[in-house]
Amino acid sequence: MFYNKALDSFLEEAGDISRFTAKFFREFLKPRYEFSEFLRQCFYIGYKSFGLVAVTAFIMGLVITIQSRPTLVEFGAEAWLPKMVSISLIREIAPVITALICAGKIGSGIGAELGSMRVTEQIDAMEVSGTNPFKFLVVTRVTACITMVPILAVLAIAVSLYGAYLGCNIHGVVSWKLFWNQVFETNTFSDVVPAVTKTFFFGLDIGIIGCFKGYFSKKGTEGVGRSANSAVVISSLLIFVLDLVAVQIADLLGFT
């Protein structure tokens, strides 16, 4: 009985999110375009998250390099350290970590902001003033997420590689030129394209789930907290699911 109820509510929510996503694409194409609000959201989502993403990416690059080194030394393959670390960082770690940080920071922020606007009737106020709140609030935020998450991911890749370079030089000596030579020799266009492409879908996931949870927030302030929380949980989980799908598709298309 419980199982059926849980499955029902899961399927119902999945259906609602799909409809919400379809509405996003419909409204995205229709004028009027809220360009200034889109730019404002890009600033909040991109610029204000960059510091956090950069610090995390730098530490990840550094830590992965330091932790990988002993194993490679054991096999006498220390010279491969820049190659191996850069593949992990570019293909997987930097895009996924960036997306997870964005899900935590941006997804929860959007969920809480729209949730509190819903419970304080600000969304209704927008609607009765003849403004389409879905277009003004949802389309701008989701579009900004789709735009900024890939940019943040590319920056995170660059910063994490710099961290990896420093990591290589803690116990050994790898020149700046040699490090980058190895990175560019190993990683080709077919490594970068799938890695960056999947971040557009991560951005869509973070924006849609954050907006969906906030836009339909209920039950007062308790509901706002729940919206922010579930926005993070669901979008983080979906990032891993999307990553799995992206890896399979990249594999099928020969990007490996």
Binding site: S116, M117, T120, E121, Q122, D124, A125, M126
Partner: peptide, 8 residues
Amino acid sequence: FQSNALYD
């Protein structure tokens, strides 16, 4: 609106 609904 009862709650004023100003955009905060």
